[in-house]
């Protein structure tokens, strides 16, 4: 890794910035909330190392909702896992609020694609596991209980919080997954195709819920999706990735649609449809992928 130093001292930051970083990104590092700088990753294969991501630069503001979109296999999840700290980049690095990301942590909560709830625990207990871990010594027992229930209420799961995952539907499971992530009070919430496995109707419901929560909490969110509508509807920015190998950021699209957004009105909105078209053009013209 290139960024060996921890950016908690201004002087240190400056030294590194002068030596290794372009002036532009050094300024960005100072101000940025979440900064990915020249992130590349190689995976070892039997045929030698394989470069999955190449020199990704991304600067995300506090409270911003960013979608990563791209063809399957382009490395979207890898980007997310690097931010989560589950993968270590081969080159470059990630800085969150002035600290380099070196390992996973609850300030970067992850909502996994297939919910990843512990099947032997109830919805309540699943959230409780996270809350007890994060707020150990900071909240009293009663406060914790209140906090767990609050988050389950937020995702409309208070009615089934004592059910185990195998007793509730896929959408409900994903709601619990979101509640668990929210309950960690993360700085950044990382969502890996959170609604990918759901039917269209359930997905719409969850998207609405998410927008509602987001309006209230204003979390920084990075979400992976391959659903164009979802990306345009939810995001402040859409990061479109090129196809692998050595995938990188292709284009970044600002979604300057006013909030709150309503899916029905949006359907007829010209700006919305234009943005939608831009994304489709990137995916199916510029980065056309031949499925053989």
């Amino acid at each position: 890794m290139n960024l060996k130093l921890i950016f908690n001292q201004e002087s240190a930051m400056e030294t590194v910035a002068q030596e290794e970083m372009p002036a532009e990104s050094s300024r960005a590092a100072e101000q940025a909330h979440l900064l990915m700088s020249q992130v590349s990753i190689d995976f070892p294969t039997p045929k030698g190392s394989f470069r999955a991501l190449d020199k990704i630069d991304l600067n995300i503001q506090r409270g911003e909702f960013v979608s990563l979109i791209g063809h399957s296999g382009c490395g979207k999840s890898t980007v997310l896992n690097i931010v989560a700290g589950l993968y270590q980049p081969t080159e470059g690095g990630v800085i969150l609020d002035g600290r380099e990301v070196t390992e996973p942590g609850p300030e970067r909560a992850v909502v996994f694609q297939n919910h990843s709830l512990l099947p032997w625990l109830t919805a309540y207990e699943n959230v409780a596991l996270a809350v007890k871990q994060v707020f150990k010594g900071k909240k009293s027992k009663a406060e914790m209980r209140e906090w767990i229930e609050h988050n389950l209420r937020l995702v409309h799961m208070d009615h089934a919080m004592h059910k185990r995952p195998d007793e509730i539907s896929g959408g409900m499971k994903q709601r619990v997954g979101i509640a668990r992530a929210l309950a960690m009070e993360p700085t950044v919430m990382l969502m890996d195709e959170p609604f990918g496995a759901l039917d269209a109707l359930t997905r719409a419901h969850l998207q609405d819920s998410l927008m509602e929560i987001q309006r209230e909490l204003k979390n920084t969110v990075i979400m992976i999706t391959h659903d164009v509508d979802e990306a345009v509807l939810l995001s402040d920015r859409i990061v479109m990735m090129t196809n692998g190998p050595a995938a990188t950021v292709g284009e970044v699209l600002d979604i300057d649609l006013p909030r709150p957004r309503d899916r029905l009105t949006m359907a007829d909105d010209a700006q919305y449809n234009h943005l939608r078209h831009e994304v489709l053009k990137f995916l199916y013209e510029k980065q056309r992928k031949d499925e053989t």
Binding site: A84, G85, L86, E103, P104, G105, P106, R108, A109, V110, F112, N114, S116, L118, L129, A130, Q133, V134, M184
Partner: peptide, 14 residues
């Protein structure tokens, strides 16, 4: 144990 559950544990720093 599914990788996802292991990741959950890592994210939670259990």
């Amino acid at each position: 144990i599914p990788q996802d559950l292991r990741n959950v544990s890592k994210v939670l720093r259990l």
